[in-house]
Write a protein that binds this DNA or RNA. Structure first.
Lengths: 187, 187
DNA sequence: CTATATTCATGACGATCATCATGATTGCCG
DNA sequence: CGGCAATCATGATGATCGTCATGAATATAG
Protein backbone atom coordinates (compact mmCIF):
# COMPACT_ATOMS: atom_id res chain seq x y z
CA UNK A 1 0.00 0.00 0.00
CA UNK A 2 2.25 2.74 -1.24
CA UNK A 3 0.96 6.29 -1.73
CA UNK A 4 2.08 9.12 -3.96
CA UNK A 5 4.89 11.37 -2.88
CA UNK A 6 2.58 14.27 -2.30
CA UNK A 7 0.09 12.07 -0.48
CA UNK A 8 2.91 11.10 1.83
CA UNK A 9 3.86 14.74 2.40
CA UNK A 10 0.21 15.47 3.08
CA UNK A 11 0.07 12.60 5.55
CA UNK A 12 3.10 13.90 7.34
CA UNK A 13 1.59 17.35 7.50
CA UNK A 14 -1.60 15.94 8.92
CA UNK A 15 0.26 13.93 11.54
CA UNK A 16 2.06 17.05 12.75
CA UNK A 17 -1.18 19.00 12.76
CA UNK A 18 -3.22 16.52 14.77
CA UNK A 19 -0.27 15.85 17.06
CA UNK A 20 -0.08 19.57 17.75
CA UNK A 21 -3.72 19.65 18.72
CA UNK A 22 -3.66 16.43 20.75
CA UNK A 23 -0.50 17.32 22.65
CA UNK A 24 -1.84 20.74 23.55
CA UNK A 25 -5.11 19.22 24.64
CA UNK A 26 -3.95 16.22 26.62
CA UNK A 27 -0.21 16.55 27.16
CA UNK A 28 2.65 14.60 25.62
CA UNK A 29 2.39 11.55 27.86
CA UNK A 30 -1.35 11.09 27.60
CA UNK A 31 -1.28 10.87 23.81
CA UNK A 32 -0.12 7.61 22.28
CA UNK A 33 1.51 7.21 18.92
CA UNK A 34 -1.41 5.06 17.81
CA UNK A 35 -3.85 7.79 18.84
CA UNK A 36 -2.05 10.39 16.79
CA UNK A 37 -1.95 8.15 13.74
CA UNK A 38 -5.60 7.26 14.08
CA UNK A 39 -6.55 10.94 14.34
CA UNK A 40 -4.55 11.52 11.17
CA UNK A 41 -6.55 8.82 9.42
CA UNK A 42 -3.81 6.20 9.43
CA UNK A 43 -2.74 3.23 11.53
CA UNK A 44 0.25 3.08 13.81
CA UNK A 45 2.29 1.05 11.37
CA UNK A 46 3.47 3.84 9.14
CA UNK A 47 4.60 6.02 11.97
CA UNK A 48 8.26 5.09 11.97
CA UNK A 49 8.50 5.87 8.29
CA UNK A 50 7.95 9.51 9.20
CA UNK A 51 9.58 9.83 12.61
CA UNK A 52 12.37 7.99 14.32
CA UNK A 53 10.62 7.90 17.69
CA UNK A 54 7.85 9.48 19.70
CA UNK A 55 10.40 11.93 21.07
CA UNK A 56 11.24 12.88 17.52
CA UNK A 57 7.55 13.49 16.83
CA UNK A 58 7.34 15.69 19.90
CA UNK A 59 10.33 17.79 18.87
CA UNK A 60 9.15 18.18 15.29
CA UNK A 61 5.60 18.96 16.35
CA UNK A 62 6.89 21.64 18.68
CA UNK A 63 9.01 23.23 15.98
CA UNK A 64 6.07 23.09 13.61
CA UNK A 65 3.41 24.50 15.90
CA UNK A 66 5.68 27.19 17.33
CA UNK A 67 6.75 28.33 13.88
CA UNK A 68 3.13 28.49 12.80
CA UNK A 69 2.25 30.71 15.73
CA UNK A 70 3.07 34.22 14.63
CA UNK A 71 0.53 36.00 16.81
CA UNK A 72 1.36 38.93 19.05
CA UNK A 73 2.94 41.19 16.47
CA UNK A 74 0.23 43.85 16.30
CA UNK A 75 -1.33 45.77 19.14
CA UNK A 76 -0.28 44.34 22.48
CA UNK A 77 -3.47 45.30 24.29
CA UNK A 78 -5.66 43.62 21.72
CA UNK A 79 -3.40 40.59 21.84
CA UNK A 80 -3.56 40.42 25.63
CA UNK A 81 -7.34 40.79 25.49
CA UNK A 82 -7.68 37.78 23.27
CA UNK A 83 -4.98 35.81 25.07
CA UNK A 84 -6.54 36.38 28.47
CA UNK A 85 -10.06 35.58 27.35
CA UNK A 86 -12.20 32.66 28.60
CA UNK A 87 -12.38 31.58 24.99
CA UNK A 88 -8.63 31.06 24.79
CA UNK A 89 -8.51 29.46 28.23
CA UNK A 90 -11.15 26.94 27.13
CA UNK A 91 -9.46 26.17 23.84
CA UNK A 92 -6.16 24.60 24.77
CA UNK A 93 -6.12 22.33 21.74
CA UNK A 94 -6.22 25.26 19.34
CA UNK A 95 -4.63 27.87 21.57
CA UNK A 96 -1.16 29.16 22.27
CA UNK A 97 1.33 26.27 22.18
CA UNK A 98 3.47 27.95 24.79
CA UNK A 99 0.70 28.10 27.35
CA UNK A 100 -0.23 24.52 26.62
CA UNK A 101 3.20 22.95 26.49
CA UNK A 102 5.95 24.96 28.22
CA UNK A 103 5.62 23.31 31.56
CA UNK A 104 5.98 19.86 30.06
CA UNK A 105 9.18 20.76 28.24
CA UNK A 106 11.24 20.28 31.37
CA UNK A 107 10.78 16.52 31.01
CA UNK A 108 11.44 16.32 27.30
CA UNK A 109 14.50 15.75 25.14
CA UNK A 110 17.11 18.42 24.35
CA UNK A 111 15.68 18.77 20.85
CA UNK A 112 12.29 19.65 22.28
CA UNK A 113 13.80 22.10 24.74
CA UNK A 114 15.69 23.72 21.92
CA UNK A 115 12.57 24.13 19.81
CA UNK A 116 10.70 25.69 22.71
CA UNK A 117 13.58 28.03 23.50
CA UNK A 118 13.53 29.36 19.95
CA UNK A 119 9.77 29.76 20.12
CA UNK A 120 10.03 31.75 23.32
CA UNK A 121 12.82 33.90 21.97
CA UNK A 122 10.87 34.94 18.91
CA UNK A 123 7.67 35.44 20.87
CA UNK A 124 9.43 37.84 23.25
CA UNK A 125 10.90 39.67 20.28
CA UNK A 126 7.51 39.88 18.62
CA UNK A 127 5.90 41.34 21.71
CA UNK A 128 8.75 43.80 22.04
CA UNK A 129 8.10 45.03 18.51
CA UNK A 130 4.50 45.62 19.51
CA UNK A 131 5.70 48.23 21.99
CA UNK A 132 7.48 50.74 19.76
CA UNK A 133 6.58 53.66 22.02
CA UNK A 134 8.93 52.44 24.76
CA UNK A 135 12.66 52.87 24.82
CA UNK A 136 14.65 49.65 24.38
CA UNK A 137 15.25 48.73 28.02
CA UNK A 138 11.64 49.35 29.02
CA UNK A 139 10.49 47.53 25.94
CA UNK A 140 12.41 44.39 26.73
CA UNK A 141 11.25 44.42 30.33
CA UNK A 142 7.63 45.01 29.40
CA UNK A 143 7.74 42.28 26.75
CA UNK A 144 9.15 39.65 29.08
CA UNK A 145 7.12 40.69 32.09
CA UNK A 146 3.81 40.82 30.32
CA UNK A 147 4.50 37.61 28.42
CA UNK A 148 5.28 35.80 31.67
CA UNK A 149 2.09 37.16 33.18
CA UNK A 150 -0.02 36.12 30.19
CA UNK A 151 1.35 32.59 30.08
CA UNK A 152 1.14 32.22 33.84
CA UNK A 153 -2.41 33.53 34.00
CA UNK A 154 -3.70 31.19 31.30
CA UNK A 155 -2.01 28.20 32.91
CA UNK A 156 -3.42 29.12 36.31
CA UNK A 157 -6.87 29.87 34.93
CA UNK A 158 -6.94 26.45 33.27
CA UNK A 159 -6.13 24.74 36.53
CA UNK A 160 -8.81 26.42 38.63
CA UNK A 161 -12.14 24.63 38.94
CA UNK A 162 -14.09 27.65 40.14
CA UNK A 163 -15.25 29.58 37.05
CA UNK A 164 -15.57 32.88 38.89
CA UNK A 165 -12.02 32.77 40.25
CA UNK A 166 -10.69 31.55 36.93
CA UNK A 167 -12.35 34.45 35.11
CA UNK A 168 -11.03 36.84 37.71
CA UNK A 169 -7.45 35.69 37.24
CA UNK A 170 -7.71 36.40 33.53
CA UNK A 171 -9.42 39.72 33.97
CA UNK A 172 -7.16 41.08 36.71
CA UNK A 173 -4.04 40.00 34.87
CA UNK A 174 -5.31 41.81 31.81
CA UNK A 175 -5.84 44.95 33.87
CA UNK A 176 -2.46 44.58 35.58
CA UNK A 177 -0.64 44.35 32.24
CA UNK A 178 -2.63 47.25 30.85
CA UNK A 179 -1.72 49.35 33.85
CA UNK A 180 1.91 48.40 33.68
CA UNK A 181 2.28 49.35 30.05
CA UNK A 182 0.37 52.61 30.45
CA UNK A 183 2.46 53.68 33.39
CA UNK A 184 5.75 52.93 31.69
CA UNK A 185 4.62 54.69 28.52
CA UNK A 186 3.63 57.81 30.41
CA UNK A 187 6.90 57.96 32.25
CA UNK B 1 5.12 -7.47 59.22
CA UNK B 2 2.95 -5.08 61.14
CA UNK B 3 4.28 -1.79 62.49
CA UNK B 4 3.23 0.40 65.36
CA UNK B 5 0.47 2.93 64.91
CA UNK B 6 2.85 5.84 65.01
CA UNK B 7 5.26 4.09 62.69
CA UNK B 8 2.41 3.79 60.22
CA UNK B 9 1.56 7.47 60.57
CA UNK B 10 5.21 8.26 60.06
CA UNK B 11 5.28 6.09 56.96
CA UNK B 12 2.28 7.86 55.57
CA UNK B 13 3.87 11.22 56.26
CA UNK B 14 7.03 10.12 54.52
CA UNK B 15 5.12 8.86 51.50
CA UNK B 16 3.40 12.22 51.10
CA UNK B 17 6.68 14.03 51.57
CA UNK B 18 8.67 12.08 48.99
CA UNK B 19 5.70 12.07 46.62
CA UNK B 20 5.61 15.85 46.86
CA UNK B 21 9.26 16.07 45.92
CA UNK B 22 9.12 13.45 43.17
CA UNK B 23 5.97 14.87 41.57
CA UNK B 24 7.42 18.37 41.53
CA UNK B 25 10.64 17.07 40.09
CA UNK B 26 9.41 14.68 37.41
CA UNK B 27 5.68 15.23 36.99
CA UNK B 28 2.77 13.04 38.02
CA UNK B 29 2.95 10.64 35.11
CA UNK B 30 6.67 10.03 35.24
CA UNK B 31 6.60 8.88 38.85
CA UNK B 32 5.35 5.37 39.54
CA UNK B 33 3.71 4.21 42.71
CA UNK B 34 6.56 1.79 43.25
CA UNK B 35 9.08 4.62 42.90
CA UNK B 36 7.34 6.69 45.53
CA UNK B 37 7.19 3.77 47.94
CA UNK B 38 10.81 2.89 47.38
CA UNK B 39 11.85 6.49 48.01
CA UNK B 40 9.87 6.32 51.23
CA UNK B 41 11.80 3.23 52.26
CA UNK B 42 8.99 0.75 51.62
CA UNK B 43 7.84 -1.57 48.86
CA UNK B 44 4.85 -1.07 46.61
CA UNK B 45 2.75 -3.59 48.50
CA UNK B 46 1.63 -1.41 51.35
CA UNK B 47 0.57 1.43 49.14
CA UNK B 48 -3.11 0.60 48.95
CA UNK B 49 -3.33 0.45 52.68
CA UNK B 50 -2.70 4.18 52.71
CA UNK B 51 -4.30 5.40 49.51
CA UNK B 52 -7.16 4.11 47.39
CA UNK B 53 -5.39 4.82 44.10
CA UNK B 54 -2.58 6.77 42.53
CA UNK B 55 -5.05 9.55 41.81
CA UNK B 56 -5.87 9.62 45.49
CA UNK B 57 -2.18 9.94 46.30
CA UNK B 58 -1.90 12.83 43.86
CA UNK B 59 -4.84 14.67 45.39
CA UNK B 60 -3.65 14.14 48.95
CA UNK B 61 -0.09 15.06 48.10
CA UNK B 62 -1.30 18.27 46.53
CA UNK B 63 -3.39 19.19 49.53
CA UNK B 64 -0.45 18.39 51.78
CA UNK B 65 2.23 20.26 49.89
CA UNK B 66 0.04 23.28 49.20
CA UNK B 67 -1.01 23.54 52.82
CA UNK B 68 2.63 23.33 53.89
CA UNK B 69 3.57 26.18 51.58
CA UNK B 70 2.83 29.35 53.52
CA UNK B 71 5.44 31.52 51.85
CA UNK B 72 4.68 34.93 50.41
CA UNK B 73 3.16 36.53 53.46
CA UNK B 74 5.89 39.01 54.29
CA UNK B 75 7.52 41.52 52.01
CA UNK B 76 6.44 40.99 48.43
CA UNK B 77 9.65 42.30 46.91
CA UNK B 78 11.79 39.97 48.97
CA UNK B 79 9.47 37.10 48.11
CA UNK B 80 9.64 37.89 44.40
CA UNK B 81 13.43 38.13 44.61
CA UNK B 82 13.69 34.63 46.01
CA UNK B 83 10.95 33.25 43.80
CA UNK B 84 12.53 34.60 40.63
CA UNK B 85 16.03 33.46 41.50
CA UNK B 86 18.09 30.90 39.55
CA UNK B 87 18.24 28.95 42.77
CA UNK B 88 14.49 28.49 42.86
CA UNK B 89 14.34 27.79 39.15
CA UNK B 90 16.90 25.01 39.58
CA UNK B 91 15.18 23.49 42.58
CA UNK B 92 11.83 22.29 41.28
CA UNK B 93 11.74 19.34 43.66
CA UNK B 94 11.90 21.59 46.70
CA UNK B 95 10.39 24.71 45.19
CA UNK B 96 6.94 26.21 44.86
CA UNK B 97 4.39 23.46 44.23
CA UNK B 98 2.29 25.79 42.14
CA UNK B 99 5.08 26.50 39.69
CA UNK B 100 5.92 22.82 39.49
CA UNK B 101 2.45 21.36 39.24
CA UNK B 102 -0.24 23.81 38.09
CA UNK B 103 0.06 23.04 34.45
CA UNK B 104 -0.40 19.32 35.03
CA UNK B 105 -3.58 19.82 37.03
CA UNK B 106 -5.65 20.20 33.89
CA UNK B 107 -5.28 16.46 33.30
CA UNK B 108 -5.96 15.34 36.85
CA UNK B 109 -9.05 14.35 38.81
CA UNK B 110 -11.59 16.80 40.25
CA UNK B 111 -10.15 16.23 43.73
CA UNK B 112 -6.74 17.35 42.55
CA UNK B 113 -8.19 20.38 40.78
CA UNK B 114 -10.04 21.30 43.91
CA UNK B 115 -6.92 21.09 46.06
CA UNK B 116 -5.01 23.26 43.62
CA UNK B 117 -7.82 25.82 43.45
CA UNK B 118 -7.74 26.21 47.22
CA UNK B 119 -3.97 26.54 47.15
CA UNK B 120 -4.17 29.28 44.53
CA UNK B 121 -6.91 31.08 46.38
CA UNK B 122 -4.95 31.29 49.60
CA UNK B 123 -1.74 32.18 47.81
CA UNK B 124 -3.43 35.13 46.11
CA UNK B 125 -4.87 36.21 49.44
CA UNK B 126 -1.48 35.92 51.09
CA UNK B 127 0.18 38.06 48.45
CA UNK B 128 -2.62 40.60 48.75
CA UNK B 129 -1.95 40.89 52.47
CA UNK B 130 1.67 41.61 51.65
CA UNK B 131 0.55 44.80 49.90
CA UNK B 132 -1.17 46.73 52.68
CA UNK B 133 -0.19 50.08 51.21
CA UNK B 134 -2.57 49.65 48.28
CA UNK B 135 -6.29 50.17 48.32
CA UNK B 136 -8.37 46.97 47.95
CA UNK B 137 -8.97 47.00 44.21
CA UNK B 138 -5.35 47.76 43.38
CA UNK B 139 -4.23 45.21 45.92
CA UNK B 140 -6.23 42.41 44.37
CA UNK B 141 -5.06 43.31 40.90
CA UNK B 142 -1.43 43.54 41.93
CA UNK B 143 -1.61 40.25 43.81
CA UNK B 144 -3.09 38.32 40.91
CA UNK B 145 -1.01 40.02 38.24
CA UNK B 146 2.30 39.64 39.97
CA UNK B 147 1.53 36.07 41.02
CA UNK B 148 0.70 35.13 37.43
CA UNK B 149 3.93 36.75 36.28
CA UNK B 150 6.00 34.95 38.92
CA UNK B 151 4.55 31.54 38.16
CA UNK B 152 4.76 32.09 34.42
CA UNK B 153 8.34 33.32 34.58
CA UNK B 154 9.57 30.34 36.61
CA UNK B 155 7.80 27.89 34.32
CA UNK B 156 9.24 29.59 31.26
CA UNK B 157 12.71 29.89 32.76
CA UNK B 158 12.69 26.16 33.52
CA UNK B 159 11.84 25.33 29.93
CA UNK B 160 14.57 27.41 28.31
CA UNK B 161 17.87 25.67 27.54
CA UNK B 162 19.89 28.86 27.15
CA UNK B 163 21.08 29.93 30.61
CA UNK B 164 21.49 33.57 29.63
CA UNK B 165 17.96 33.89 28.30
CA UNK B 166 16.58 31.93 31.22
CA UNK B 167 18.30 34.24 33.70
CA UNK B 168 17.06 37.23 31.78
CA UNK B 169 13.45 36.09 31.96
CA UNK B 170 13.71 35.85 35.73
CA UNK B 171 15.51 39.15 36.12
CA UNK B 172 13.28 41.18 33.83
CA UNK B 173 10.14 39.76 35.34
CA UNK B 174 11.44 40.73 38.75
CA UNK B 175 12.06 44.27 37.52
CA UNK B 176 8.66 44.40 35.80
CA UNK B 177 6.84 43.41 38.97
CA UNK B 178 8.88 45.82 41.04
CA UNK B 179 8.03 48.62 38.65
CA UNK B 180 4.39 47.74 38.59
CA UNK B 181 4.03 47.78 42.36
CA UNK B 182 6.02 50.99 42.78
CA UNK B 183 3.96 52.83 40.21
CA UNK B 184 0.65 51.75 41.67
CA UNK B 185 1.81 52.63 45.16
CA UNK B 186 2.88 56.11 44.13
CA UNK B 187 -0.39 56.78 42.36
C1' DC C 1 5.87 -1.69 -19.32
C1' DT C 2 8.44 -3.81 -15.87
C1' DA C 3 11.28 -3.98 -11.81
C1' DT C 4 12.29 -1.83 -7.76
C1' DA C 5 11.61 0.77 -3.90
C1' DT C 6 8.63 2.70 -0.71
C1' DT C 7 4.51 3.54 2.18
C1' DC C 8 1.33 1.94 5.03
C1' DA C 9 -1.56 -2.08 7.44
C1' DT C 10 -1.49 -5.94 10.40
C1' DG C 11 0.28 -8.10 14.09
C1' DA C 12 3.60 -9.15 17.63
C1' DC C 13 7.05 -8.29 21.46
C1' DG C 14 8.92 -6.61 25.60
C1' DA C 15 8.72 -3.27 29.04
C1' DT C 16 6.32 -0.54 32.35
C1' DC C 17 2.77 0.17 35.46
C1' DA C 18 -1.49 0.35 38.42
C1' DT C 19 -3.78 -2.68 41.08
C1' DC C 20 -4.85 -6.81 43.67
C1' DA C 21 -4.11 -11.46 46.20
C1' DT C 22 -1.74 -13.80 49.57
C1' DG C 23 0.94 -14.53 53.49
C1' DA C 24 4.15 -13.47 57.19
C1' DT C 25 5.15 -10.68 61.01
C1' DT C 26 3.74 -8.42 65.04
C1' DG C 27 1.41 -4.49 67.42
C1' DC C 28 -2.42 -4.21 70.57
C1' DC C 29 -6.79 -5.17 72.96
C1' DG C 30 -8.90 -7.97 76.31
C1' DC D 1 -0.15 -13.30 77.81
C1' DG D 2 -2.75 -15.08 73.88
C1' DG D 3 -5.47 -14.30 69.81
C1' DC D 4 -7.22 -11.02 66.59
C1' DA D 5 -6.34 -7.69 63.28
C1' DA D 6 -3.58 -4.67 60.78
C1' DT D 7 0.60 -3.48 58.00
C1' DC D 8 3.76 -4.35 54.82
C1' DA D 9 6.56 -7.72 51.47
C1' DT D 10 6.36 -10.69 47.65
C1' DG D 11 4.52 -11.86 43.59
C1' DA D 12 1.05 -12.01 39.95
C1' DT D 13 -2.25 -10.02 36.50
C1' DG D 14 -4.07 -7.37 32.91
C1' DA D 15 -3.74 -3.33 30.36
C1' DT D 16 -1.24 0.15 27.80
C1' DC D 17 2.32 1.54 24.94
C1' DG D 18 6.63 2.28 22.16
C1' DT D 19 8.87 -0.06 18.74
C1' DC D 20 9.81 -3.41 15.20
C1' DA D 21 8.98 -7.30 11.62
C1' DT D 22 6.53 -8.66 7.80
C1' DG D 23 3.83 -8.31 3.84
C1' DA D 24 0.70 -6.18 0.46
C1' DA D 25 -0.06 -2.63 -2.71
C1' DT D 26 1.55 0.64 -5.93
C1' DA D 27 4.06 4.93 -7.31
C1' DT D 28 7.96 5.89 -9.91
C1' DA D 29 12.38 5.33 -12.35
C1' DG D 30 14.45 3.32 -16.30
Amino acid sequence: MKVSREQMAENRRRILEVAGRLFRDKGFDAVSVAEVMKAAGLTHGGFYGHFSSKDDLIAQTLADVLAADSTGGGDLRAYADAYLSPRHRDNAAGGCPTAGLVADIRHQTPAARSAMTEGLRSQIDRIGKALPELDPADRRRAAIGSWAAMVGAVIIARAIDDPALSDEVLEQTRAWIDDGISQVSAR
